[in-house]
Nucleic acid binder design. Structure first.
Lengths: 207, 207
DNA sequence: ATTCATACTACTCACATGAGTAGTATCAAT
DNA sequence: ATTGATACTACTCATGTGAGTAGTATGAAT
């Protein structure tokens, strides 16, 4: 019952293509022009059919407000871009221009938290956090400016490099510990800059 | 010289967020309303500044035609939606309607491989792969139909559930092994369905 | 001192755009 | 035979929307 005709599918594809390309969604007249219709009503008819069949939605009276609602985009939530740094520059990660190695885009819901401007990513070097199952090459998502709690993993600026450590409080004093018996670093955290608190992780496995 | 003021940055973020969410780009009046301006001219002034500094582009006279052209979107590549299953239904993951728990969107470049229609995700239950640093609650990205190689991690259908195991070949025969001494499962792989080969991993760390 | 960018309010204008009315033609299902 | 969905043309209307004019205030740079 919810099957599309060829014309309707073509129009749905046309809209979806524009949407995916990052371009504004076409207007009734743009659709009409593209398909050679001489009246925008023809396009409106097809959109009505697509709406009735649940493939698209729009807000009334609002220009270019079409949305394709495939089973995927229905589930889809807010997205967020998070910059990946090779190493974090000193201070705030707001100095975005420098050292940005790439960008990762995550679905907020699947991640379980909402990234802010203070969220950034870092490529892990070394196996100092292997005890927490954070491996060499993993991308870790961190939040700048968050207050670290006992047992949380944090990024700290040590010897000119950003390194991951576990944040611990012992006798009221904060310490940093590597999660690998090979590295016996236990460093008083007072003298250091905590750059971010671990919020998530992305790993790529080579094929 | 191309630095943005805080106001301009906020407005750029507002536009980019809408764009990423798949929503139509805001109009002058929508921007003005969101930031509490009483005139759309205020928004237009900021957009003029952003255009002059090269952060956005627009087509004249066209509704909602803004595009963010920051270094971010320049780096940005193809995105891919990957469905997350609570447990994989038997057979091909193409039966997407069922058991889809959520959706994760990843940047292809940061992931290091290109997801296909055969790429899917699975939420890990249990710690049977802790030896490979795959933890309970992690989201693993898998590829259906790929030929598993010795030592790769695969998803297999065992006792009505999808479980992760390491794929091994011993004396020409394929075996599956759990990476946890607690689970001594060594199962001949011939009788089993390999549902997918591990390609990536996403972890969320509770705040 | 003056210039310039930023950051607005208040208002206007033209046209872009969604939405609608009325009518025609075709085809499949009943 | 008649109904209903599809697939249009021709036209109108209200409002959404980008663009612009005029003016005010602030602060940094020269």
């Amino acid at each position: 019952m919810n099957e599309l005709t060829e014309k309707q599918r073509n129009i749905l594809d046309f809209i979806q293509l524009a949407q995916q390309a990052g371009a504004p969604v076409p207007t009734l007249r743009e659709i009409a022009e593209h398909f050679g219709f001489k009246s925008s009503r023809a396009a409106a008819d097809h959109l009505d059919a697509l709406k009735r069949k649940g493939f698209i939605q729009s807000e009334i009276g609002k220009a270019r407000s079409l949305r394709v609602v495939s089973p995927f985009t229905q589930i889809r939530n807010q997205l967020a871009d998070i910059p990946i740094f090779g190493s974090i520059p000193a201070g705030s990660p707001d100095n975005r221009e420098q050292a940005v190695e790439g960008l990762t885009t995550v679905d907020v819901k699947s991640l379980g938290f909402t990234p802010t401007r203070n969220t950034f990513a870092l490529r892990v070097k070394g196996d100092s956090m292997i005890g927490k199952h954070i491996c060499d090459g993993d991308i870790v998502l961190l939040e700048f400016g968050a207050e670290p709690h006992h047992g949380q993993v944090v990024a700290a600026f040590v010897d000119g490099l950003s390194t991951l450590k576990t944040f611990l409080i012992k006798s009221g004093k904060p310490f940093l510990r590597a999660e690998n018996p090979k590295y016996r670093d236990i460093i008083p955290a007072e003298e250091l800059t905590i750059q971010g608190v671990l919020r998530g992780l992305i790993r790529r496995t080579d094929a």
